[in-house]
C-alpha cells in the first residue's frame, strides 16, 4: 500500500503548486470569460463574449496574423537551426575539445539573451533609419532613408519573424545536435563507399533521423511564438495585433466590460496552443519510441 502511493506523494509539491497557480488561473479565467464576474456584479453564465469575439473582424485579423507570424517564425527558425547544426556537425573536426566547448558557448549566446533584448537589437538593425540602412547608404546602394524597406513595425510582422528566427534557431539546433552526435562518423565514411555525397547523406540518413526531434521542437517554437507577449508588444503595429497583445489591450482598455472578452481571447489562445502541444508530443512519441525525446 505505502510504496504504491509514494510516486503521488513525491509529485505532490510540484503538481499541487501548478494545479493551484496554473490550472487555477486558467479555470478562473475561463469562468470569467463565460460572464461570471462577481466583482463586476455579473453572476450569469453565457457565451456572449465568445460570440462577440468571433463576430469581430479584429479578432479574426489578429488570429490570421498570429498564425502567419508563428508559422513563418517557426519555419525559418527550424530551417535555420537545422542548417546550422548540420553544418556544424558535418564540418566538425576531431580534437580540440576545449575549443569546441568555447564555440558551443558562443553559439548559445542568443539563448542567453532575453527576448526583449533581442527584439530591440532587431529594431536598431532593421528600422528605416537603422544600422543596416546606414551601411547600405554609406556603400552608396541607397540614397534615401525611404529607399530602405519598412521592416520594423510593419503589418507583415517581418521584424517579429526575424527576432524569433534568430532567437529560436539556436534552440532548434540545440535540440537536434544531441541526435546528430549519436550518428557515428563512420556512417558517413560507409555511405561514401556506396557513393553517397554530402547531400544524399543528409537526405537519406540525417533527415529521417532528425525529423521527429525537428518537428516536435518546431512545434514548440510555433506554440511559443503563437502565445508570447513581449516581442509583438514591442514590435507590433497598432492594427492588426497579435492575439496576446489583443488580449492585453482589451484587458487594459480601462473598462470592466472588456475584461471577459480579453479572458475569452486567452482561453482560445490556451486551447490552440494546447492542441499544438499535444500534437508535438504525439509526433515526438510516434516517431521515436525509444528516443529520449526532444523538448
Amino acid at each position: 500500500m505505502w510504496p504504491n502511493i509514494k510516486p503521488y506523494i513525491y509529485v505532490l509539491p510540484t503538481a499541487g503548486v501548478l494545479l493551484i497557480l496554473f490550472v487555477g488561473g486558467l479555470i478562473e479565467g475561463l469562468i470569467q470569460s463565460l460572464g461570471y464576474f462577481p466583482a463586476a456584479g455579473q453572476y450569469g453564465f453565457s457565451l456572449d463574449y465568445y460570440r462577440q469575439l468571433l463576430s469581430s473582424s479584429d479578432f479574426w485579423d489578429s488570429l490570421i496574423l498570429t498564425f502567419r507570424i508563428a508559422l513563418l517564425s517557426s519555419l525559418s527558425a527550424g530551417v535555420l537551426g537545422m542548417f546550422v547544426s548540420v553544418c556544424l556537425f558535418m564540418l566538425k573536426r576531431p580534437g580540440s575539445g576545449r575549443k569546441n566547448q568555447i564555440w558551443q558557448r558562443f553559439f548559445q549566446l542568443p539563448l542567453i539573451v532575453p527576448h526583449l533584448v533581442w527584439a530591440y537589437l532587431m529594431v536598431l538593425l532593421f528600422t528605416q533609419s537603422g544600422w543596416l540602412s546606414r551601411i547600405l547608404a554609406s556603400l552608396g546602394w541607397i540614397h534615401h532613408i525611404n529607399d530602405f524597406p519598412v521592416l520594423v513595425n510593419d503589418s507583415f510582422g517581418g521584424d517579429i519573424i526575424f527576432t524569433y528566427a534568430w532567437k529560436e534557431a539556436p534552440f532548434i539546433a540545440l535540440m537536434i545536435y544531441p541526435v546528430l552526435l549519436r550518428i557515428h562518423g563512420s556512417w558517413f565514411e560507409a555511405s561514401r563507399v556506396f557513393g553517397a555525397n554530402r547531400w544524399s547523406f543528409f537526405r537519406e540518413i540525417l533527415l529521417p533521423l532528425l525529423m521527429p526531434t525537428w518537428i516536435s521542437s518546431s512545434f514548440i517554437v510555433f506554440a511559443f511564438t503563437f502565445s508570447a507577449f513581449e516581442v509583438p508588444f514591442l514590435l507590433g503595429v497598432t492594427y492588426p495585433r497579435m492575439l496576446p497583445v489583443l488580449s492585453y489591450n482589451l484587458y487594459t482598455s480601462g473598462g470592466l466590460e472588456a475584461r471577459p472578452e480579453a479572458l475569452a481571447v486567452n482561453v482560445i489562445l490556451a486551447v490552440i496552443v494546447s492542441i499544438l502541444g499535444v500534437a508535438a508530443y504525439r509526433l515526438s512519441q510516434r516517431w521515436s519510441m525509444d528516443e529520449q525525446g526532444g523538448w
Partner: peptide
C-alpha cells in the same frame, strides 16, 4: 487516490 488529490486542489482554489 490520484483523483482525490486533484479534486482536493481544485476545491481548494
Amino acid at each position: 487516490f490520484f483523483y482525490l488529490i486533484a479534486g482536493f486542489f481544485i476545491l481548494a482554489i
